Computed example of a mutant assay.
Amino acid sequence: AMIGAVGDDDFGRALVGNLARRGVDSRFVRVAPGAGSGMSVAIFDAGGDYGAVIVSGSNLTLGEKDIAAATEVVAQTAVLLLLQNEVPEAANIAA
């Protein structure tokens, strides 16, 4: 299952479509009107050190209410909770 936010753009629709094709429960992926979908591009230097270029977009609209709405899903999948830290800290803490 995934909890998140995508923009009301082509990229957001493609992301949600990909989740559906892969059987991921995306009931709690909210479309953020007027926001572009967020993305992150991984970069590595010659020594192999990792960095990222982050364009937050709709990710910054994710909040405690989104997590609260998905409490049942979080409780059912508590075996593993992956936090990407590209959303507001309050959302990560609530999860």
Score class of each variant (00 low, 15 high):
residue 94 A to R: 14
residue 2 M to G: 07
residue 86 E to Y: 04
residue 19 L to E: 06
residue 60 L to I: 08
residue 80 L to R: 12
residue 63 G to I: 02
residue 87 V to S: 10
residue 74 V to G: 07
residue 80 L to K: 09
residue 66 D to T: 11
residue 93 I to D: 11
residue 51 G to N: 08
residue 23 G to Q: 01
residue 25 D to Y: 03
residue 43 I to R: 08
residue 27 R to H: 06
residue 31 V to P: 02
residue 22 R to W: 05
residue 17 G to M: 02
residue 95 A to S: 12
residue 39 M to S: 14
residue 54 I to A: 03
residue 76 Q to L: 10
residue 68 A to C: 04
residue 25 D to R: 00
residue 11 F to I: 15
residue 1 A to T: 15
residue 11 F to V: 15
residue 62 L to Q: 10
residue 91 A to T: 07
residue 17 G to L: 04
residue 77 T to D: 02
residue 85 N to S: 09
residue 56 S to W: 03
residue 6 V to H: 12
residue 63 G to H: 07
residue 51 G to L: 00
residue 85 N to M: 12
residue 6 V to E: 13
residue 72 E to H: 08
residue 14 A to G: 12
residue 43 I to V: 08
residue 52 A to I: 02
residue 73 V to W: 01
residue 9 D to T: 04
residue 91 A to V: 10
residue 59 N to M: 09
residue 86 E to G: 04
residue 56 S to C: 09
residue 72 E to F: 07
residue 17 G to F: 04
residue 27 R to C: 03
residue 42 A to R: 13
residue 23 G to S: 00
residue 52 A to S: 01
residue 35 A to Y: 04
residue 55 V to N: 02
residue 23 G to W: 03
residue 60 L to P: 01
residue 41 V to Q: 06
residue 37 S to A: 11
residue 67 I to K: 13
residue 62 L to C: 09
residue 9 D to W: 10
residue 50 Y to I: 01
residue 54 I to T: 02
residue 33 P to G: 01
residue 64 E to R: 14
residue 47 G to L: 05
residue 88 P to D: 12
residue 67 I to N: 04
residue 16 V to I: 11
residue 63 G to R: 10
residue 81 L to C: 11
residue 80 L to W: 11
residue 43 I to M: 03
residue 22 R to F: 01
residue 91 A to Q: 05
residue 79 V to P: 04
residue 65 K to S: 11
residue 14 A to K: 13
residue 8 D to Y: 07
residue 2 M to C: 15
residue 59 N to S: 10
residue 54 I to P: 00
residue 46 A to L: 06
residue 18 N to D: 12
residue 15 L to M: 12
residue 37 S to R: 05
residue 28 F to H: 13
residue 12 G to H: 08
residue 65 K to V: 06
residue 76 Q to M: 07
residue 60 L to N: 09
residue 38 G to C: 08
residue 14 A to M: 15
residue 6 V to L: 13
residue 86 E to T: 14
residue 90 A to L: 12
residue 31 V to L: 04
residue 20 A to S: 11
residue 74 V to T: 11
residue 43 I to C: 05
residue 26 S to V: 03
